[in-house]
Design a protein around this nucleic acid. Structure first.
Lengths: 338, 338
DNA sequence: CTGAAAGCGCTTACAG
DNA sequence: CTGAAAGCGCTTACAG
């Protein structure tokens, strides 16, 4: 079946295509009688506008890209869900691209490459993007970054206060009387900004109580998966200075992996070791023990990012690019005795 | 910066736009010298083709839709990841749409509606689609269904053998000597086909051993979330005939919810109650106890679906629409003593 | 091997 | 309020 075009509708209704276009787009200047004739023709022919043609003419695609490291990491799929829903309200369709944390894929997706040319704008949760990458960006559309601002880049970004949140998580453990608190998930290289901010929060909480940090309790992990947390915890249990009595993991997946190791080794939670995570994914709420965690407001993050992107796309001027802060809370559950 | 067009490149290189198009698309009939001039102009201007215009002309969009009930359900996000990756290899971009299991959204996405008009083809994991819905479909592009075939519909579908898999899961529990095996996740209404097939497998496993099923041990759930599994398990523990000694849950999320309830109530797993799930999501591999489950080959499912869709899109004739079967396996873990 | 031209289906000044 | 026409940026028969 050859698709119906504006022209077919126009012929059937006995009007010009201009008039059909007016009716379809809901512009007011059409007489009631003409409108009805057109609407009937549209219904009879089952006409739907060709979005490609419309957008070619309008100079937009109606597509925005959401770029995340891994779609099947719960934090990102929960976030993606919220972004897709929010963008829909504004009439935009979201294409989700996963980079597997490969720097090349991330760069490609913000540049005016074959794929980027398809999108009006991009929301990116970067893992390995440097300031230089951003400076080199040559694509036309707006870009909103999720997570910590990459220093001095001229782009909007949406984040929670990672230092304060990590500090709150650590202080919670300190207030419980724990004295050897490990930190799992540090990434002490140039693209590990978010992890480094959490480490800073961890240090600040200690400093606020006049305590010094045992650096050997800060453990780096390559990724933020359950397996990384499980491996890191195994190492910590064999720590020469004895195992820690608490662990602050930089995301819930790490924490769930760590818990698995603890339980396997017969360590009691929270009695012997208390555990705190970060992200508040559903898995942590049903784990045994349930997981104490920092809960970023993902709905708010999605909303701030989409609203900002769309207002730039629609030519409204939301002002200079800058930081947008989303709230978070500490959810106390069984893994710390809650 | 106004985008460069084919025309700009043609002017700079001193050739016609036809020639630039030939070079850009890699068609052979261009002299080496001309090609070089064009390539240099492309590089200097940073030209990238306008995909909208190209696809308008070619009569395709390059977009395929993946429609799932909920993006943040691990089975779907793991599947989505595989589909996105596979489609990329064929040059297609995937748009993921979530329906929240709303029948209207599912219907809209397979019909020639505003959104569907944007896609060359659709891969749909239906939850509430009826045969009538499919019969009414008027969109042009191919559709591949994930999961059980909706009776006699003229579409391709990719599935595992749910009856056999459910039977294998149940038989595993029977072989362990369990005698009161509950089934959690039945959906005895017209759109719950997959659930019903699993119930059939559950019954067949019993029948094969000459055992009769206690129908009161078959529990329906509205959704397949952890909370549904937790609630169902709570009910089963208060079963008038006494609690079951095993539970077969129709997905891992239900099983993880059920396990949470069991542990909260002090029931030992698998000693008192053994648990089997379905889907093999990562959460089950790190849970304590680790979860015995049916593991569908998700990579294969994604590959079969994408390959079939793309071969129809590209005009190859893969034959009559029909079933494509993906393999599965039973993964025995701690929740059944493995 | 390359050019001039039509047309994909739409939107939108320009007239009337 | 409505029509005839140009043009978004591309691809591709048709000529040469």
């Amino acid at each position: 079946m050859a698709p119906t075009r504006l022209r077919d509708v126009a012929e059937r209704a006995g009007v010009s295509i201009r008039t059909v276009s007016n009716v379809v787009n809901g512009y007011a200047q059409v007489s009631d009688e003409t409108r009805q004739r057109v609407e009937q023709a549209v219904a009879e022919l089952g006409y739907h506008p060709n979005l490609l043609a419309r957008n070619l003419k309008r100079g937009r695609t109606g597509l925005i890209a959401l770029v995340v490291p891994e779609l099947d990491v719960p934090y990102f799929s929960e976030l993606a869900r919220a972004v897709v829903a929010k963008a829909r309200l504004h009439g935009y369709t979201v294409v989700i691209d996963q980079t597997d944390g490969e720097p090349d894929r991330e760069r490609e997706l913000i540049m005016r490459g074959a794929s980027a040319a398809l999108f009006d704008g991009v929301i990116l949760s970067p893992l390995a993007l440097s300031q230089a990458d951003l400076a080199r960006r040559d694509a036309a559309g707006p870009l909103v970054l999720l997570g910590e601002r990459i220093a001095a880049s001229p782009y909007d970004h949406v984040a929670i206060d990672n230092v304060a949140a990590a500090s709150a998580a650590t202080e919670h453990l300190l207030a419980l009387g724990r004295t050897r608190i490990a930190a799992v998930g540090d990434q002490p290289y140039d693209t590990g900004e978010t992890a480094q901010l959490r480490t800073r929060g961890y240090r600040e909480a200690h400093a606020a109580r006049g305590l010094r940090v045992d650096d050997s309790l800060i453990v780096s992990t390559h990724k933020f998966h359950r397996s990384d947390g499980a491996a890191a915890m195994a190492d910590l249990l064999d720590h020469p200075g004895g195992p820690p009595d608490a662990v602050f993991c930089y995301n819930d997946l790490l924490a769930l992996g760590a818990i698995r190791t603890l339980l396997t080794r017969g360590v009691r939670i929270p009695d012997d070791v208390a555990v705190v995570g970060f992200d508040d994914i559903e898995a942590g709420r049903y784990n045994t023990p349930t997981l104490t965690t920092i809960s970023p407001d993902k709905t708010m993050i999605a909303q701030l990012a989409v609203d900002r992107l769309v207002s730039r796309l629609d030519g409204r001027s939301p002002g200079e690019p800058g930081e947008l802060w989303a709230p978070y809370s500490l959810e106390i559950r069984e893994s710390t005795g809650g």
